[in-house]
Design a protein around this nucleic acid. Structure first.
Lengths: 247, 247
DNA sequence: CGCCTAGTTGACCAGGTTCAACAACGGTGG
DNA sequence: CCACCGTTGTTGAACCTGGTCAACTAGGCG
């Protein structure tokens, strides 16, 4: 494996090592996977609903998201993904996609054939378990999103997402000092949280007014992490990260 | 394995065979698991948030649900489970529970130690894949729920859930002829769909008024399946069942 | 400069919530 | 057998969070 791709895989490796470090054998197995790396433009579908993909992907850089389209043209974003994520690993075991996967920003993406993943998993049950775990953490995040959308106010939801993405990005070294690049637009935010873009705009102003965050261009700064987590009712347990951020 | 437990496991087996039939070896492996069967009362926690369970369970009969509690005492139900489901399989790979699991009705439940599951999975990678698949289908259902709660009206959401549960129950032989026992109260429904019990009540009246359903006691009858699926915007793909119901 | 996307604002509206009271029902004990 | 009780379902009225529509502003880029 070239040094370049090795570096690019760092976030993914870091995630897989969340439970405990990889063995040399596991590293070798990952290194021998046939990656095909591509740079994708922003706002491009990677996989569409009803597709039957024969490969899955790793996000190397940029943000991606999964979404469903409704009859009246509405969109619901069901998850956000950053470097290190394997957003369509489920394709290995499920058939036709029940949703679509797309880039939010320009993304570097590594594709791996399902067959290679399958033989990796049968060769190394421990790696299979690690990959399974990743999909289970996805499930846990879904549960939290259901709870947010179902029972929390717009103010709380938006604050919550800022906290979530901060920890997700921190875990792969892409955020620290309570700031990061927040790639989604206000419309994207609305589609992720079940809100209109107009209302997102107003709530953002309120969050700024309370001096909890600032958000200009794509730069998000969390000005008061303790207070933000409080109004967000944010409890990081559901992310199943090993090293929760200090307050 | 006794004939009794074998019969009780039928729904679970049927679910695992959704992709393709079990081999004799796989059946034997399942049969040799050490089940401990218990009858639980309605409205009882099976696992609580923050617990670190050392076993997981199979619902043999009755309805169960997973939920999260919020600070102000609100509740969000994140999934409903019926006979054949393994609602806390994720515990094998994740640590402390991020949510709770409880019975909605009286339930017969089989408990299996995680260790037994783990050795089952390392002995039979194909069974491991089947179990993994179950958790992925759960994930797919979460995505649909996020979409429902985020972007669909109350009317649509309730209709959607009635369709979903009909197919889930049909798949394990617990519903046919467009009728089944709907175990949840109106408050439960509200907590699952992000609505108040009062509004659920009103929407139910409208669904009855449109002659789409009738619901008395715990008996749900779907009076007009084509129309109900239409107003629900219901597309069964996300359930990943092999034999979709005829319209 | 012109175009396009993203962000912002105001006015109005509606879906859904809250509160409070009451009805229906089933189970329990006297 | 009936009185009692808790749970579930039902109704009305007032309210409010957040949606819709439409117009306008601010940036970024070729």
């Amino acid at each position: 494996m070239s040094v370049a791709i090795q570096t690019e895989l760092t976030p993914a490796i870091r995630k897989l090592e969340n439970a405990h470090p990889l063995t040399d054998g596991e590293r070798r197995a990952i290194g021998s996977l046939p990656f095909s790396v591509r740079m994708l433009e922003a706002h491009q579908d990677i996989v569409r609903e009803r597709d039957r993909p024969s490969q899955c992907c790793i996000i190397l850089s940029g943000w991606a998201y999964r979404y469903k389209l409704l009859e009246e043209g509405k969109r619901q974003i069901v998850s956000l993904h950053v470097a290190g994520d394997l957003p369509d690993l489920h394709g290995v075991h499920l058939g036709a996609m029940d949703h679509a996967l797309a880039t939010l920003t320009g993304c570097r993406v590594a594709f791996i054939p399902h067959d290679s993943i399958r033989s990796l998993m049968s060769d190394s049950p421990s790696l299979a378990a690690r990959l399974w775990r990743e999909t289970l953490v996805d499930g846990s995040i879904y549960r939290e999103w259901i709870t947010c959308i179902g029972r929390r106010s717009a103010y709380c939801r938006i604050a919550h997402l800022f906290c979530e993405m901060y920890l997700k990005l921190s875990a792969v070294g892409l955020a620290d000092d309570f700031r990061y690049d927040f790639a989604a637009t206000q419309s994207d935010l609305g589609d992720a949280l079940g809100l209109s873009n107009v209302h997102v705009n107003r709530v953002l102003q309120e969050l700024r007014g309370q001096n909890l965050i600032s958000l200009q261009g794509r730069k998000l700064v969390i000005r008061d992490w303790p207070e933000l987590t409080k109004v967000a009712q944010f409890n990081p347990n559901y992310l199943y990260l090993q090293e929760p951020v200090a307050a």
